[in-house]
Amino acid sequence: MKENNKLNFPASLRLTDQSAEEGFTALTELGDCYLSVGDHQQAQLCYDQAADIDPDRAEPYVGIGAVAFQNGNTDEAENAFKVALRLDRTNAKAHCGLAMIYHNAGAYTEAFDRYLKCLEQDTDNLSALLGLFQTSCQMGSFEKVTHYLEVYLSMHPDDHSVMFCVATLYMRDGKLQKAQRALNAVLKADSDNTDAAALLEEVEHQLAQKA
């Protein structure tokens, strides 16, 4: 990359003042920061320079893929995520990135498989959990996603958006009492949650019919 396209880091971050490993870490972390605030140009520069330092590490390509995906360049994003996975088959973020691309394209089976691969490496990945829930609703397959959502809730019991997703899956799977308990927990924390209230009404109606 040409020198005039490089970031002008403060002295504390210049690569001449630190080891290659420290420079790589600083660049990828700074790229993630820029990406999180929507500064795609600066994020891209950081990831490109990190890849120049160590082209055999997956992290910069995950970042490059994320920038491309957020800019709507899905072909470029897919290629970058696949490069990342060639370098590290266990990279959860790269699997999740591909899953989101397939999901947006309506390729639900491929998206489902990639979300699962992500969660096998990182059960705490909320983007993959919610994506898996959405694809499960499209496909009518709930068993695996319910397991991962339950694992997540065991670590984050106060995440009521995920608890609502679990309640929805319980209801669709005929586990009405579990759905009722989960929805009551959601409404105890958020009494104005109209979606949870409506679903609870439907669950209790079904329970009454079975009584």
Rank of each mutant, 00 (worst) to 15 (best):
I101E: 04
Q134W: 09
L132D: 10
V162R: 02
K144Y: 07
Y108C: 09
V145F: 08
R172M: 11
D173T: 13
Q177W: 02
M171D: 14
H103L: 06
Y170E: 12
L176A: 02
M100C: 03
D173I: 06
F164Q: 03
S141H: 12
T168E: 12
T146Y: 03
M163G: 07
A128S: 03
D122K: 01
F142C: 11
T135V: 14
E110N: 08
L169S: 10
T146G: 05
M163W: 06
L119D: 11
S161W: 07
F112K: 13
G106K: 15
Q180E: 15
Y148A: 05
V166A: 12
Q134F: 04
E110H: 11
Y115A: 02
H160V: 00
Y115F: 08
L132T: 11
Q177R: 05
Y152R: 08
Y102K: 11
L119A: 08
D158K: 14
V151I: 14
R172P: 07
M155P: 01
D113Y: 05
R114Y: 11
L129D: 12
T168Y: 10
D158Y: 11
Y148H: 10
Q134N: 13
Q138W: 00
M171R: 15
S136T: 04
F164W: 07
L176T: 01
P157W: 06
N125H: 04
K175P: 02
Q180W: 13
Y108N: 15
H160K: 04
G131Y: 05
C137A: 01
L126V: 13
L116M: 02
V162L: 04
L169F: 13
Q121P: 06
M139L: 00
S127P: 07
H156C: 10
T109A: 14
S154V: 03
F164M: 05
E143L: 10
D122Y: 02
C118W: 01
E120H: 13
E110L: 14
Y115L: 02
E143M: 12
C165D: 05
L176M: 04
H160G: 03
L169A: 13
A111C: 09
K175V: 00
L119R: 11
F133V: 01
K117I: 00
L149P: 10
Q180T: 10
T168H: 09
L126Y: 11
H160I: 04
Q134Y: 12
L153N: 07
K178D: 15
M163L: 09
L153D: 06
M171Y: 15
F133D: 08
A111T: 09
K117P: 00
A167Y: 05
I101Q: 03
F142K: 14
S154Y: 01
T146Q: 11
K117C: 07
L169I: 13
L130W: 14
L149F: 14
A111V: 08
H147G: 03
T168V: 05
M155T: 06
A179D: 03
D122E: 01
Y148K: 03
K144L: 08
S127R: 15
E150F: 08
S154A: 04
R114C: 12
A128K: 01
I101T: 00
H147L: 07
L126E: 15
I101F: 02
Y170S: 11
Y102D: 12
E120P: 02
Y148C: 01
V166G: 04
T146D: 06
E150N: 09
L130Y: 15
M139F: 00
Q134L: 08
